[in-house]
Amino acid sequence: MGLVTGLEMNTGKNMARLFIDGSHALTLSVEVILENKIKDGMEISQKRIEALKEDEEAHICKKSAYRLLAFRARSEKELRDRLVSKGFSPKAVDKTVDHLKASGLIDDREFGRQWAENRLSFKPQSAYLTRRELKAKGLSEEAIEEAVKDYDDYENALSAARAKAVRSIGLDYIAFKRRVGSFLQRRGFGYEIIKPVIDELWKELTEYKNSRENLQ
């Protein structure tokens, strides 16, 4: 059992040097000092010292997580992987993730919903491709299916390919089919969607070209 013989505060850095039996033992954040009610003259065991080290690591881990989340939303798996890659222990990562989940800052269902909506708004693609992306980010099957429940692959494919179709207005049908079809394949759509979408877009382009010719 040791004795706390000093707390040397550095308020500018929000840190404190903890002295035990006259020797510098630990440097801790002020938050950890206050949370653990560390004071001059109190007795402190080696077990308590080890617990303080764990609390300090968890505190630093939490601050790192906040910075990552301020940059962009992340799934639980993404955040865990990044924190582990920064060298934090599994215990510190678990404590951090539990805290963030409890405060609503990590929510895989909400993350999946936002990811799916973002794809529809800025890069329309198939439900299959969105499912694959969300699975890679560690979402559960239930969360993934909830995220893509409103997907309509036919409408999404039309939306995705219209700009490509307009830029292909001078092509014959074979070249048009090849260009638009390849584009839709890269967006994750299958043949059963690609074929009717190509036919619909070709019909729209043909009607547009005919209407222009009639005006001349």
Score class of each variant (00 low, 15 high):
residue 89 S to W: 03
residue 107 D to A: 09
residue 101 K to N: 13
residue 48 R to K: 15
residue 115 W to M: 08
residue 51 A to Y: 05
residue 86 K to P: 01
residue 100 L to R: 10
residue 87 G to W: 09
residue 33 I to M: 08
residue 44 I to Y: 10
residue 142 E to N: 11
residue 148 V to F: 02
residue 71 F to I: 11
residue 199 D to F: 05
residue 71 F to S: 12
residue 168 S to P: 01
residue 116 A to K: 07
residue 109 R to K: 14
residue 208 Y to H: 13
residue 213 E to M: 14
residue 178 R to N: 00
residue 204 E to V: 03
residue 125 Q to S: 04
residue 41 G to R: 10
residue 201 L to D: 02
residue 42 M to P: 01
residue 64 S to C: 08
residue 212 R to Q: 13
residue 202 W to Y: 13
residue 129 L to A: 07
residue 101 K to Y: 04
residue 137 K to I: 03
residue 3 L to W: 13
residue 178 R to L: 00
residue 75 S to V: 04
residue 9 M to I: 07
residue 197 V to P: 00
residue 136 A to C: 07
residue 64 S to V: 01
residue 44 I to P: 06
residue 192 E to G: 10
residue 146 E to V: 06
residue 91 K to A: 12
residue 56 E to T: 03
residue 20 I to Q: 12
residue 128 Y to G: 05
residue 167 R to Q: 12
residue 184 L to A: 03
residue 188 G to N: 09
residue 60 I to D: 02
residue 9 M to R: 15
residue 177 K to V: 01
residue 175 A to Y: 10
residue 40 D to K: 14
residue 81 D to Q: 14
residue 213 E to P: 04
residue 77 K to D: 12
residue 19 F to S: 11
residue 38 I to S: 08
residue 43 E to V: 08
residue 85 S to T: 03
residue 121 S to G: 00
residue 35 E to N: 14
residue 38 I to Y: 11
residue 181 G to Q: 06
residue 10 N to H: 15
residue 132 R to Q: 11
residue 99 H to S: 13
residue 1 M to S: 13
residue 202 W to N: 03
residue 39 K to F: 13
residue 100 L to E: 09
residue 193 I to F: 05
residue 144 I to N: 04
residue 175 A to K: 15
residue 102 A to Y: 10
residue 98 D to R: 13
residue 76 E to C: 10
residue 141 E to M: 04
residue 194 I to V: 15
residue 213 E to S: 13
residue 119 R to F: 02
residue 23 S to Y: 10
residue 103 S to F: 12
residue 151 Y to V: 02
residue 73 A to C: 05
residue 197 V to F: 03
residue 124 P to H: 04
residue 189 F to C: 01
residue 9 M to G: 00
residue 8 E to W: 11
residue 67 R to Q: 13
residue 33 I to V: 15
residue 75 S to G: 06
residue 88 F to T: 04
residue 208 Y to A: 14
residue 173 Y to G: 02
